[in-house]
Design a protein around this nucleic acid. Structure first.
Lengths: 229, 229
DNA sequence: TTGCAATTCAAACAGTTGTATGAAACTATC
DNA sequence: GATAGTTTCATACAACTGTTTGAATTGCAA
């Protein structure tokens, strides 16, 4: 492996194009044109298109996960093995939110790529995401230590909701801006982090049991008249 | 328009195939084979593949939205124009959750299709989703009436988080089951609805202001060593 | 029945896609 | 400076895609 030049040019070009135009309509030919390399170079260096995408996604995921664990470890060491739940949650959702939100023009290519990966789910990325469970288990452990009185089920649901709010906000940030007519300021990332952490904390420390009301009928499947939507 | 036979056969076959195998690898030829009709029939009846997908998705969205508004209207009429926030939130997330969760074997094709539409976002569907804002505004209105002291921004965030928890739970239901080793029972739909509504209610009625801690550095972009993930 | 429009059909089209090939160019080692 | 291994390159390939075409068939109305 001499200089890595072609390899990294492909990676950079691919990430930029995917970030800008999505996975759907970026072909290998687009990528090699942007990278100024030969078409065959992709298969030579990466084996296949899917492996290129996977490598791209794995790199960025590792970076985010490393940042998450760094924050988590620091917090637990400071608290003698038991970090406050808010800090754990902040370590969980902070890095992702900070990476993907913030002013448009200063949002990195990497972040825009990860947003795309979150919006348009393609097979090679889906396969990798399934492996993220081990990573999440570390946060489950920390949350258990922080809230020893909470049941496991509540912990799992709290984690699920925290990730839900973070990812959904990233994924649908445009819609939220439009719906709120700009009143929700998604460029103020730390405010977003604080909101997510606050709600997730309430979810984990709030009301003990959830009431179970009577079941409701399922949505109709029959014919329809155009009126809503 | 004589008998609609071909048309509805295509719709049914397409929905079934998309639900089972996703949008990515279902071709028009797969659909017409499943529907036992000629290849050209799709373009004759729908104009294009994208319009077929759009028609499918619009139908199901309308059904869900109608159900949502039915619940909302009933609740507001009962309360004299002012429904409790829990009931509004239940009307918002209940129909979707009930449609998409529940025991695998009794989950309808329609519901499985909508899950797919939520996981794999394809262009024709993305275009339609952007039009859903008007629909959501009706819920914003109801929430404002229910919580007149809350700021608009808080309302928007509460709505956003409610949808986040519902959609993310549907989309990542498999992962949550695996992570929790089956302890989170996603077949008990009403429990899921109750949990989402409960947390969303806390988000909307809980702590007034969110504290604003100091900013944190962004995730590193540099080289990486495989360790996490 | 005749005529006309709607529908179905087989076949082909035009374009794109990711991938493979084999020769050429390069690079570093001896 | 010859050699061996790596990397680049132009080109071809094979398959698949959504769409179109124009003729056949069908169904209904006059």
């Amino acid at each position: 492996m001499a200089s890595d030049h072609t390899r990294s040019a492909i990676l950079a070009a691919a990430e930029r194009l995917y970030a800008d135009r999505g996975f759907g309509d970026v072909t290998l030919r687009d990528i090699v044109a942007e990278a100024n390399v030969n078409l065959a170079a992709v298969n030579y260096h990466f084996g296949s298109k899917d492996e290129l995408i996977a490598e791209l996604f794995v790199s960025r995921s590792i970076a985010t996960n490393r940042e998450r664990l760094r924050e988590l470890k620091a917090a637990e060491e400071e608290g003698g093995g038991r970090a406050p739940i808010e800090v754990i949650l902040r370590a969980l959702v902070g890095p992702t939110l900070r990476g993907c939100l913030g002013p448009e023009n200063q949002r990195s290519t990497a972040a825009r790529f990860m947003i795309r990966a979150s919006i348009e789910s393609v097979p090679p990325i889906r396969r990798i995401k399934n492996r993220e469970i081990d990573h999440l288990r570390k946060f489950v452990g920390a949350m258990r230590r922080s809230l020893p009185d909470r049941s496991d089920v509540d912990i799992y649901w709290g984690l699920n909701f925290a990730l839900a709010m973070a990812h959904h906000t990233i994924r649908e940030s445009e819609r939220l801006t439009k719906l709120s007519e700009g009143k929700c300021d998604l460029d103020d990332v730390e405010d977003v982090v604080a909101r997510v952490v606050s709600v997730a904390t309430m979810a984990l420390t709030g009301a003990e049991a959830t009431s179970k009301p009577a079941a409701r009928p399922m949505a109709a499947n029959g014919r329809l008249t155009r009126q809503d939507l």
